[in-house]
């Protein structure tokens, strides 16, 4: 047994404390309505009823969130990947300024963006539409994706790109057949975060898509419960659990990409 084995139980306790709110959410979501206020530490009065409510009421919102998430990923990559290739390996006029603008863009408060976009969308008719929300959500992800992908693509060996050019490949061809496949990991990380941010968005959905009916994302499905006269904690927590599934799945199947993104996003420059 190693000398540091005693750290295992301490680390377990710390993790349990940190994740306790999430356990509590699960607990409430499985507890019968009349017993929720009792506050038992485990769902003694077990029920699936709240999940039945979720599947009855929330499926359209979940579908909308899925469409918005995928749409945001596609749009973000379509804009970010080619630009990153150019910024990383070609002489782009004003390239330094673009880099600076991307860092600054990440600091703009979402409230300011939502106010500006609201007024623009009001004029062009994008309020309460899916494309409008996808465009707005992509503003969270595009600067991050460009910075991440540029950093990665700058590390691709020059010889690889030059070899392609000597073989007569066009820039587009080099990009498609060499740069994109080589950058697979960074692309997955960008896509993953673009999806998670779009899935989690609250501010844009609650301002730009207020009257969107069923074409609103799941965050608004939960928000409906908060606004209700009589807060129904069971269905609310069950919806919260369901809304957490993408993050949980991604953490399990793609933890290395998540960790990469957090570090890059944190120390992004």
């Amino acid at each position: 047994m190693s000398r540091t084995w005693w750290k295992n139980p301490i680390a377990l306790v710390m993790t349990a404390l940190m994740l306790f709110p999430l356990y509590w959410m699960l607990n409430v979501s499985f507890t019968k309505r009349e017993s929720i206020r009792g506050g038992d530490l485990a769902p003694v009065d077990f029920t699936f009823d709240h999940y039945a409510v979720v599947f009855r009421d929330q499926l359209p919102y979940l579908g909308t969130s899925l469409v918005i998430g995928v749409g945001t990923v596609v749009l973000t990559l379509a804009i970010a990947a080619p630009a990153s290739f150019a910024l990383a390996s070609m002489a782009v006029p004003g390239g330094r300024f673009i880099g600076f603008a991307l860092i600054v863009a990440q600091m703009v408060p979402a409230v300011v963006m939502s106010l500006g976009l609201y007024s623009i969308y009001n004029t062009v008719g994008l309020l309460d539409t899916l494309p409008g929300l996808i465009l707005a959500d992509s503003t969270i992800a595009v600067p991050f994706a460009v910075l991440l992908l540029t950093a990665f693509m700058a590390g691709i060996p020059r010889e690889l790109l030059q070899a392609a050019q000597i073989d007569g490949a066009s820039h587009w061809r080099t990009f498609r057949s060499i740069v994109l496949p080589v950058s697979r990991n960074a692309i997955i990380t960008s896509a993953l975060f673009a999806f998670l941010w779009a899935w989690s968005d609250f501010i844009f959905a609650s301002t730009l898509n207020r009257e969107g009916g069923l074409l609103r994302p799941i965050t608004m499905g939960i928000y409906n419960y908060i606004g209700a006269q009589n807060q129904e904690w069971g269905p609310m927590m069950a919806t919260a659990v369901v809304a957490s599934i993408p993050a949980a799945v991604l953490l399990v199947v793609a933890q290395k990409y998540v960790a990469a993104g957090v570090t890059a996003g944190a120390v992004k420059n």
Binding site: T15, M18, P21, F202, A240, S244, A247, V262
Partner: peptide, 18 residues
């Protein structure tokens, strides 16, 4: 890895739970 979970969840999930 588990410590990352709160960061990845939609804020509305954590907010309602708190």
């Amino acid at each position: 890895g588990m410590f990352l979970v709160p960061w990845l969840l939609p804020v509305i999930v954590s907010g309602t739970t708190w």
